[in-house]
Design a protein around this nucleic acid. Structure first.
Length: 255
DNA sequence: ATGGCGCTTAATAAGCGA
């Protein structure tokens, strides 16, 4: 079973890239973030023609998440229970007995800002919910744009980024709290190239200079860790014309 | 170096992302 996540930064603009990528890679499930589309405008028929079904929770301009799958999607949930939020950041569904949770974590803007506080409270609510979710669904995968670079090796210039949003200690502590639930960063289960990142700023030729961060992740629950065979970052879509600033992360599990 | 680029809504600029 091939699982993937990709922040497309507007599904309207990136639909051709997404369809090409699905055709070339044939994942069983692809989690999307920053679709930036109201549900009425979601390109369901185009995806169905490509052999996929989808569930989605979007809004105009900002945020928006979707799960695209070859298999039937069941028990669909949007948002975090008991965490009222206008921002469409979470969607979950079960397919082939695996609970797939797709997240677009808040950016946080700057350390100490209101948006940063929102980010930390959002992570607290997420982890409290997932603790229960893992009881109901021991086979669980948490995929998405976490907007956290977990360690210094996930940052192109740790000194320049030190203390900044996306790498600050309270954010990294939240990432470790997720690991305390038994979730593991599938990327680090395997030997990886140095300087592996999933996002590069559009400016300053950051991609060409590999000035990136690894902030998109696939976390797997304890029972899925032993059956994970690989996790890779696919840099190819970042080289296309008008790319998303993020690139897909892919993991395979044998179930 | 507080800019840079790209997307969105809106409207001929401004907010936001990371």
């Amino acid at each position: 079973m091939k699982l993937a996540t990709w922040n497309v930064n507007s599904l309207k603009v990136r639909l051709p890239h997404a369809l090409d990528w699905l055709e070339a890679n044939q994942p069983d499930v692809l989690c999307l973030q920053e679709t930036k589309q109201e549900d009425s405008k979601f390109p369901l028929s185009e995806l169905q023609q490509a052999g996929y079904q989808a569930v989605f929770s979007g809004q105009r301009t900002y945020n928006g998440v979707a799960i695209i799958s070859k298999a039937v999607l069941e028990d669909v949930m949007c948002g975090i229970p008991d965490f009222p939020d206008e921002q469409r950041r979470v969607i979950a569904a079960t397919l082939n007995g695996v609970r797939v949770v797709c997240i677009y974590a808040p950016n946080g803007q700057s350390v100490g800002s209101e948006k940063y506080q929102y980010k930390l409270s959002w992570y607290l609510a997420l982890r409290k919910w997932l603790k229960n979710e893992l009881v109901c669904y021991p086979r669980l995968a948490l995929l998405g744009d976490f907007n956290i670079a977990p360690e210094d090796r996930d940052v192109h210039d740790p000194k320049a980024w030190e203390g900044n949003v996306l790498v600050s200690e309270p954010e990294r502590a939240e990432f470790r709290e997720l690991e305390q639930l038994g979730l593991r960063d599938s990327f680090r289960l395997f030997e990886q190239p140095e300087k592996s990142y999933s996002w590069w700023d559009y400016r300053m030729m950051a991609f060409r200079r590999n000035m990136g961060l690894r902030i998109d992740h696939i976390l797997l629950s304890e029972v899925l860790i032993p059956v994970c065979t690989d996790c890779t970052i696919d840099r190819a879509p970042r080289k296309l014309e008008r790319p998303s600033d993020h690139t897909p992360v892919v993991a395979n599990i044998v179930i």
